[in-house]
Computed example of a mutant assay.
Amino acid sequence: MSMRELVVLGTASQAPTRTRNHNGYVLRWDDEVICFDPGEGSQRQLLHTGVTSIDLTRICVTHFHGDHCLGLPGLIQRRNLDRATAPLPVHFPGTDAEYFHRLANASLFHSTIEVRPEPVGHDGQEFHTRAGILRARRLRHPVATYGYQLIEPDGRRLLPERLAAHGIDGPDVGRLLRDGSLDRDGRRITPAEVSTARPGQRFAFVMDTGLCDNVYALAEDADLLVIESTFLERDAARAAEVGHLTAAQAARVAAESGVRKLVLTHFSQRYSDAAEFAAEAREHFTGELVVAEDLDRVQVPKRRPAGAAAPVTG
C-alpha cells in the first residue's frame, strides 16, 4: 500500500534546544523516501521513526548552513554501515559543491556505497524521480539556497466496472494502457472510456529565505507545504535583515497560493511557546495547519477530486 507522509526529525533553527533537534525531514511518497536538510542528529532521530538509512532514495540540501547539513556525514556513513546497495542521489547548490565533498568525506571510513552528487546549477532545474518532477527554485538568503517542489504528473484511475462492461481484464488491461487503445467487438476502446482523471499532487519545501517570488512559485497549489517560520511578526525587521520568514508571512504565502496543508517549522530558540506561531498563522490561513514538533508524522492530504479547484484559504 502506498504511503505519503512527512516524518519530522527536527524543527530548530541555528541551534538545537532541549526540546527541538536541528532540522531534518523525511518525505515518504510511495516508492520515494527523500530526506530534506539533514541537520546534526538526524541519524539518531531516524531511530525513533522506523525509517532506516537504507530506505532513503535521495537527499535534498537547501543550503550549507550547519543546521541544514551537519547530519549528512552521519547519514552517509550509516548507510554504508547498513550495507545499502542502491545509489543515493544528493541534490545541493552547485556553487557550493566543495562543502558537499567536505561533508561526504568528513572522517575516515571504508566506503562501499555509491553516493551520486546531482547539484543544482540554476533556478528551475528539474530532476526526474519515481514520484514525479523534483524542481529546485532559488531563494533569497545570504548564501546560495534552493527550495524544492515535487510535482506528480496527472494520471488516470481505471474503473473496474467500466473495464468489466467492455469485457477487458487480465493482460488486456496492460495492452490498453501500453498501446493507447484496444479493439473489442468491432470497436476501438481508449483508456478515457474506462478510467477517470486522477490529478497529480504537489509537495513544497521552503527553508531559509526572505520573501520573494520563488517562495510563491514553490508553494503554488501545494497539497503539503513545509515552510520555515523562524520569527514571529514582532521581529519582522530582524527576519528581513537575515533572510528569513515570519509565521504571518508563511501563512499569507500559503493562503495566496492555494495550499491545502501548511507545516510551519525552523523555529528560533528565542521563542518558548509554539502556540504563538499557530495564533499568528491563523490570522491569515484557515486551512489545515501544523506547527511541527520533533518526530511528528504529517499525512499528505487525500487527492483532490478531478476538476476541483484549489480552495481559497485566506
Rank of each mutant, 00 (worst) to 15 (best):
E5T: 05
L6D: 02
V8A: 03
A12C: 08
S13G: 13
T17W: 07
T17G: 04
N21M: 05
G24Y: 10
D31Q: 13
I34M: 09
F36K: 08
G39Q: 07
E40P: 09
Q43E: 14
G50A: 03
T52Y: 03
I54L: 12
T57D: 06
C60T: 12
C60I: 10
H63R: 09
D67P: 01
L70N: 15
P73C: 00
L75K: 05
R79A: 00
R83S: 10
A84F: 04
A86Q: 14
A86V: 13
L88M: 11
H91I: 12
A97V: 10
A104H: 04
L108E: 14
E126D: 12
H128P: 05
A131L: 12
R135G: 04
R137H: 11
V143S: 04
L150S: 06
R156N: 00
R157T: 09
H166K: 15
D172V: 04
L182Y: 03
P191A: 01
G200T: 10
Q201G: 04
L218T: 10
A219P: 10
A248P: 01
Q249N: 01
Q249C: 03
E256R: 09
R260T: 10
T265C: 11
R270M: 08
S272P: 06
F277H: 15
E288N: 05
L289Y: 02
V290G: 03
V290H: 09
E293L: 06
V298D: 04
Q299D: 13
A306M: 08
